[in-house]
Amino acid sequence: MESKHLMQLAIILDCGSISQASGKLHISQPTLTKNMQTLEMQAGGPLFTRSRHGVRQTPLGGVLAREGRAIAKSVWSAEQSATRFGLGMQTELRIGVGPLVASLLMHTITETLLRDHPNLSLLIRVDTPYRLFEQINDDELDIAVAPTVISASQELDKVLLFEDHLAIFASCHHPLSQQKRIEVSDLSHYPWINIATYAKFEESPVERLQKAGLKQVHTHIALAGDAMICLNILPTGEYLSIMPKRVTDIAAPRFGLQSLAVEADFGERNMYLWHPPSLAGDIMLDSVARAFIDTLETAMAK
């Protein structure tokens, strides 16, 4: 079997028709049909069925298409590596971070790492923790800075960077901002902005709020992959948001925010440096960990 035929099969099934796949692959439809006939002969059975609604995979076709997608992903990864090498990124560290850390800390951490390691090139990817862990397992990232996540982190090692906990943030002009004691029930009348609503944490932000006793959470805005939207919108109204306290405190003065004195425990949000076991003892792990810790301590001292 030729790898290109497996990739072509995956494209056909993803597109739903040979004609659409031929346009995407920039090869003629007769050539693509011939390649599939060859693959079927080698595989020993039909790969898909045709109807007026398009093509539908057979069990055999589904299995081979998965292999084709894996090959395509490997080819894409190789092309990206070659591109980065061509740009001079020869000694590379691939770091994944969440949106809040990316917005508030990563620029300083990047400067620190490049100062301490002049020959280092950084690839920084911002995504939800669950997806970052998947990318480490797929060898698309070397390390990730994130909280604990269900199942996806089971095969990775972790180093504690700093302890943190969740708190409720609002504008300094919010009706609750001047109260020294706030009950959970006092939060029920206000709109919420939820960050990472769709990320697979051990418990979602809404679940944390409900566990603390807030029965109704009126979510007006849900965000995935961006934190600056939340930081910019919170001061514009009576919005509330549950966010990690130590990290968000860094941005609070700049955005006119403050944590509310709510009489409730919303749980930990400790931050870890995750890496595959094969990187244990690597000198860059210590460098990245120290850069994060120093950056956070400096920011908190200001």
Rank of each mutant, 00 (worst) to 15 (best):
R115W: 00
E207D: 13
I283A: 15
F48M: 11
T49Q: 10
E40T: 08
E202Y: 05
L122R: 03
R125T: 06
G98N: 13
R290V: 01
A199L: 02
P244H: 04
G86A: 13
L123P: 01
A144I: 02
D14P: 04
F169C: 09
V288A: 05
K180N: 13
K158F: 00
M1W: 00
I109E: 07
K24Y: 00
F85M: 15
N270G: 05
K180A: 10
D294K: 09
N137K: 12
M7H: 03
Y190W: 09
Y272M: 11
R94H: 09
H275C: 08
S204M: 10
R94A: 13
G68F: 00
E79Y: 00
W76A: 15
Y272N: 13
E163W: 00
V149R: 07
F292C: 15
K24C: 07
E238V: 01
L161F: 07
Q80T: 11
A251Y: 01
P235G: 05
P191W: 01
K245E: 15
E92T: 12
E268L: 05
Q90K: 14
S185L: 10
E79K: 13
I283L: 15
D157C: 13
K211W: 01
G45A: 05
E92W: 02
N35R: 14
C172R: 15
S287Y: 02
G44V: 09
L160K: 12
L6G: 02
R69K: 13
I242T: 06
R290W: 00
C172I: 08
M36D: 03
D226N: 15
S81L: 15
S121N: 11
F169D: 07
L160E: 14
L104M: 08
F255N: 14
S171K: 02
A212V: 06
D116W: 00
H220E: 15
R254M: 09
S151G: 08
S177P: 07
D294C: 03
A82P: 04
L104K: 02
E297P: 02
D265P: 04
L279A: 05
